[in-house]
Design a protein around this nucleic acid. Structure first.
Length: 436
DNA sequence: TCTGGGGTCCTAGGACCC
DNA sequence: TCTGGGGTCCTAGGACCC
């Protein structure tokens, strides 16, 4: 949890948060290894090559909207010479770590918030040199990783986010902007649409706009009671943060996940149960790997299947949950429970679009609750443990898919499309870039 | 034909107990 | 059998984030 607020007799000490955000991150990553695309429009598609999830500035300029469905924009891409990539998370994850370790050289007071954003916190006495620090951050990250970033400073995380937005949108800021000192915050928040505020999403945004509350400034001046009633305490925290009172601190050691899920849309509609079972087995494998990666055990597994909500064919979706007698991280046991689950909800005659697996009630493996019925089979347990370890090590070293369970299927015809994937330049020996 | 995936938090309301 | 209040626990659904 947080570090609490700092107070002294003179009043609150100003805290200084910085939000560093990689510009058009996935598009920037793809361009790093294709310098020829430096000034060209580039877009990155979601899994399954479904819709646009990242756009270079040039792509924004020619008018590609966020979340544009790729199939509708095929001609548009051709006509405007837009370069299209499938998403390549191995590449983005690796570059993300490089950016994070560069930021860490500025201060250990750091929270990696997402794949392309980090919060830093600086002591109050730095308040007069923030723009200089911001420029140093930008320059160093670009020099060391090739990724352009924007830097926003503010007395709360929410204001640092808003500052970052100015850094990115206004050319004259040179990518660095501060709301900490020497600016009229209210005047600037007048310019921020309420839906751009961190913590206000589409639904609440619409509700606010319907009541003429269109800007961050108008929102933060609403009565607390109204906010609490209509937007719960989370909404109130957002308002307080806009007023300069920190409600969120850095989270330095992200707590282990409480649920772990894996799901993918299929590359084509799937009706046959055996194929659905294969997909479920494959997703369990992946989820169980993540589970062991954070040293957790799962108390249960939920499976989900659904048809394609976007078409007009008959719809069906359902979930099934199976609990384990004793929490486990043993892939075959989870697969078999998940397959029983999918069989119990499967119905013939539908075209399914997606299955999903969620591992539930995670606990740490070292304070595992024993079960009275459990047999004391030490040798068997050791064997399972070393098998899982072997599996994870091999897949990590030689690439996922090195060792698979037969139940995951061999041909995997249901697998998602990734027709425009770039090579794994930085994480796979066979795909290192060549210099001519 | 083709529109992502992986999380967290909060609240209302039902079930159940005394 | 009916009445009422108060408390806890659980779940589904809604909302948000990247």
């Amino acid at each position: 949890m947080g570090r609490g607020y700092l107070h002294n007799s003179q009043g609150r000490i100003m805290r200084i948060f910085a939000l560093i955000d990689c510009n058009n991150f996935y598009a920037s990553c793809e361009r790093l290894f294709r310098p020829a695309l430096k000034n060209s429009p580039v877009v990155v598609l979601s899994n399954n090559d479904g819709c646009v999830i990242a756009r270079s500035q040039e792509a924004k300029d020619v008018g590609v909207p966020m979340a544009a469905p790729a199939f509708k924009y095929k001609d548009f891409f051709l006509k405007n010479n837009v370069h299209v990539f499938s998403s390549n998370y191995a590449l983005y994850g690796d570059l993300s770590q490089r950016v994070a370790s560069t930021l860490y050289t500025f201060t250990p007071e750091m929270e990696v918030y997402s794949i392309d954003e980090s919060f830093l916190e600086f002591p109050e006495h730095k308040a007069d040199e923030l723009l200089k620090i911001g420029m140093e951050i930008r320059n160093k990250v670009f020099k060391w990783t090739g990724i352009p970033v924007s830097v926003g400073f503010g007395p709360t995380k929410t204001l640092a986010k808003a500052a970052n937005r100015f850094a990115k949108k206004e050319n004259r800021t040179n990518g660095v902007f501060s709301l900490c000192k020497g600016v009229d915050i209210d005047e600037l928040l007048d310019k921020v649409p309420v839906t751009d505020v961190w913590g206000i999403g589409r639904r609440h945004g619409k509700k606010l706009i319907d009541r003429q509350v269109t800007t961050a400034r108008l929102f933060k001046d609403l009565p607390d009671l109204w906010i609490k009633k209509n937007m719960a305490v989370t909404g109130l925290h957002t308002a307080l943060e806009l007023r300069g009172t920190p409600c969120f601190s850095l989270e330095d050691a992200p707590p282990p996940k409480k649920t772990i899920s894996t799901s993918r849309s299929f590359g084509r509609p799937v009706s046959a149960l055996p194929e659905l079972e294969e997909s479920v087995a494959a997703y369990v494998s992946r989820a169980a790997e993540k589970l062991r990666g954070q040293n957790s055990l799962a108390g249960g597994v939920m499976v989900y299947l659904t048809t394609n909500r976007h078409n007009t064919q008959p719809q069906y979706s359902n979930t099934a949950t199976r609990m384990f007698p004793v929490a486990t991280d043993y892939t075959p046991e989870i697969i078999s429970a998940a397959i029983k689950g999918i069989r119990s909800i499967y119905k013939e005659g539908y075209k399914f679009k997606k299955t999903k697996v969620v591992l539930l009630e995670l606990s740490h493996k070292y304070n595992r609750q024993a079960n009275l019925l459990e047999l004391d089979d030490k040798a068997g347990k050791e064997k399972k443990k070393s098998l899982m370890k072997l599996l994870d090590t091999a897949n990590k070293r030689f690439g996922r898919q090195t060792l698979n369970y037969a139940s995951e299927g061999i041909s995997q015809l249901w697998k998602m499309n990734r027709n425009f994937k770039s090579p794994d330049y930085t994480t796979n020996w066979h795909e290192l870039p060549e210099i001519k």
